[in-house]
Design a protein around this nucleic acid. Structure first.
Length: 565
RNA sequence: UGGGGAGUCGUCCAACGGCAGGACGGCAGACUCUGGAUCUGCUUAUAGGGGUUCGAAUCCUCUCUCCCCAGCCA
């Protein structure tokens, strides 16, 4: 059992936890939390945090709470609460009965605020937002104390009570902590604790006219829930003194805040603000567009929860800013699907092939294995006949060096079927485009093996024309042309490097018959092409597939190298 | 001209005074009825200068570079 823990990925946070367990700092308890604000959809950066928090709880026999940080009613909605719950669950984590809201604690927070006032540690300030900013001072010098800083406890109590009662308009005043206007840390210059917001809250309705700020609400919520390790991202590092200050002043249970570097992924963006620009600008179809690194986008794309968890384990946890290569995410989904996805043949860009020596009205059923990595997945029968489709790019009239697929006079294997030889390429007079291939087949090679032992350089996938299922394939590529979203011309932003080919729709794909049964969410490997997932847009007559990821493509690499020369 | 953080292969993470290691990527090869998968090999790194030490990525010191902070957002 001890081995179990040590085999898990370790990182500096787990080391802290391990040490705290050893010294009995929290009585042997571990309790983390995942604290999203319900103001948008979760993305793979959140997945990193979810895997970290729930993972630590799992590894150390502790608990992880789900807590909605809902202290700003102007931005938050129930819709997001539901989607977040769905995403966390889908990722495979369970908060059991521990789902909380910061808004559950509004009364306690109010009492704590009153306590701070009584201690002379908080005051009601009438400065306008603009004045507050001015008084706060610059980064490089001290701020100025508010003229309202020395109000009496009684006056502050009265004013704060009236703030709560809704007597003042928004922005009229705030409750501020009395700390140090000269602090080098901006966060300690009398930060706002409560502001007036005449907004309806998605859970507390119109009960409150004042709402606590993050710095106050978060540490208090952690304290109430008896969190042991409050894990957050780097940008909160200089909020930590404030986190500690509140809890010290209130003299209550005190968790420790630990910061780690957020996830960045190459060739994409990772912030709600930028997602919004993509959606609003029509660059993607929505938050769950398969090109988006949102959890809902990845799910629709066909990523498995396990592959994302594995990815999060592999990227590690540290404090330095980093950009993880998208290739690692792709590796993780290939690794997962290689073992699990049934193989199937589908032709994305069909090229008609007529086997001129194959009987006109004959059809046969050939055996194909469903997954060579897992014989337990069995075999299926695939229909074969005189007219077939093969992939357009599997034929070259004038084959370049190292291209060993089909070409005039050349013999290749049709997977699980026969060896065929191309005898003629028919072309459209006007466009010059090749419209059809005439080939002969060798009846002795049925099943794909030649009795005379002759070898063939390539094996092609194919679909029988008469039995083909019509399908649409959505081919996704990286959202951005460059790995770094900030690698743009002066004065421009990431939108200037959006990949115009991030989506290519292929609407006349041909699939083998079993694809007619594809249900949204079903994943397949289209042999030699990639992993695909049936989209909810599929209809009974016409399945739609999202390309999750390509297979590794050695020929593409060779060809690219050739062109580069 | 403040405060907080961070600098290790192309990328991400490890090494906690004792041979700089793993993963992904890349390159080469083996195998293959998927140019898939699998297997093998190779490639490349401690930001810089001083110091302490038998020994430094690790400790000290100076310098350089990068990131975050001036919401009544989180």
């Amino acid at each position: 059992m001890t081995g179990q823990v040590s085999e898990r990925p370790t990182d500096f946070i787990r080391e802290i936890v391990r040490e705290d367990l050893k010294t009995g700092k929290y009585g042997g308890r571990v309790n983390t939390r995942f604290p999203p604000e319900p103001n948008g959809y979760l993305h793979i950066g959140h997945a990193k945090s979810i895997c970290l928090n729930f993972g630590i709880a799992r590894d150390f026999n502790g608990l992880c709470n789900l807590r909605f940080d809902d202290t700003n009613p102007t931005k938050e909605e129930v819709e997001y609460v539901e989607s977040i719950k769905e995403d966390v669950r889908w990722l495979g984590f369970d908060w059991q009965e521990r789902m909380y809201y910061a808004s559950d604690y509004f009364s306690v927070m109010y009492d704590y605020a009153v306590q701070l006032i009584r201690m002379g540690k908080a005051y009601v300030c009438d400065l306008s937002p603009d004045e507050t900013r001015q008084y706060r001072g610059p980064l490089t010098g001290p701020g100025k104390e508010s003229p309202y800083r020395s109000r009496s406890v009684e006056e502050n109590l009265d004013l704060f009570e009236r703030m709560r009662a809704g007597e003042f308009p928004e922005g009229a005043c705030t409750l501020r902590a009395k700390i140090d206007m000269a602090s080098g840390n901006i966060n300690m210059r009398d930060p706002v604790i409560y502001r007036i917001l005449h907004a309806e809250h998605h859970r507390t309705g119109n009960k409150w006219r004042i709402y606590p700020m993050y710095d106050f609400a978060h540490c208090v919520s952690d304290s109430i829930e008896k969190i042991t390790h409050s894990i957050c991202t780097l940008e909160f590092e200089d909020h930590r003194p404030l986190y500690d200050w509140f809890l010290d002043q209130l003299n209550v249970y005190h968790p420790q805040q630990i910061e780690f570097a957020r996830l960045n992924l190459s060739y994409t963006v990772m912030s709600k603000r930028k997602f919004l620009q993509l959606v609003d600008g029509g660059h993607v179809r929505g938050w769950d567009d398969p090109r988006m690194p949102t959890i809902s986008g990845l799910r629709r794309r066909g990523y498995t929860p396990g592959s994302i968890r594995n990815f999060c384990d592999r990227i590690g946890v540290a404090k330095r800013d980093s950009v993880v290569d998208m290739a690692l995410l792709e590796y993780c989904i290939r690794e997962d699907l290689n073992k699990r996805a049934p193989r199937v043949m589908a032709v994305l860009r069909p090229l008609k092939v007529v086997l001129i020596n194959y009987p006109e009205d004959q059809t046969e059923e050939l055996d194909a294995v469903n997954n060579p990595e897992d014989p337990g997945m069995g075999t299926r029968r695939v229909p074969f006949s005189r007219v077939l489709y093969i992939e357009r790019e599997d034929f070259r009239e004038d084959p370049p060096k190292q291209f060993y697929r089909l070409a005039p006079g050349r013999e290749v294997r049709l997977r699980y079927a026969y060896y065929i030889t191309c005898v003629k390429a028919l072309r459209d007079e006007k466009s010059g485009e090749i419209t059809e291939l005439h080939c002969t087949y060798d009846p002795a090679t049925r099943g794909g093996d030649s009795p005379d032992g002759r070898k063939v350089k390539a094996t092609l996938h194919w679909v029988s024309a008469a039995h083909a299922v019509e399908a649409e394939a959505r081919m996704y590529n990286y959202l951005l042309l460059k790995a770094d979203p900030d690698d743009v011309e002066e004065g421009k932003d990431f939108k200037s490097i959006i990949n115009p080919d991030s989506l290519e729709i292929l609407s006349s794909c041909k699939g083998e018959p079993c694809l007619a049964d594809a249900k949204p969410g079903d994943r397949y490997q289209f042999e030699r092409l990639g992993y695909f997932c049936a989209d909810p847009d599929s209809s009974a007559e016409r399945p739609v597939f999202n390309r999750i990821v390509t297979l590794k493509d050695t020929w593409a690499k060779v060809e690219k190298a050739q062109k580069g020369k």
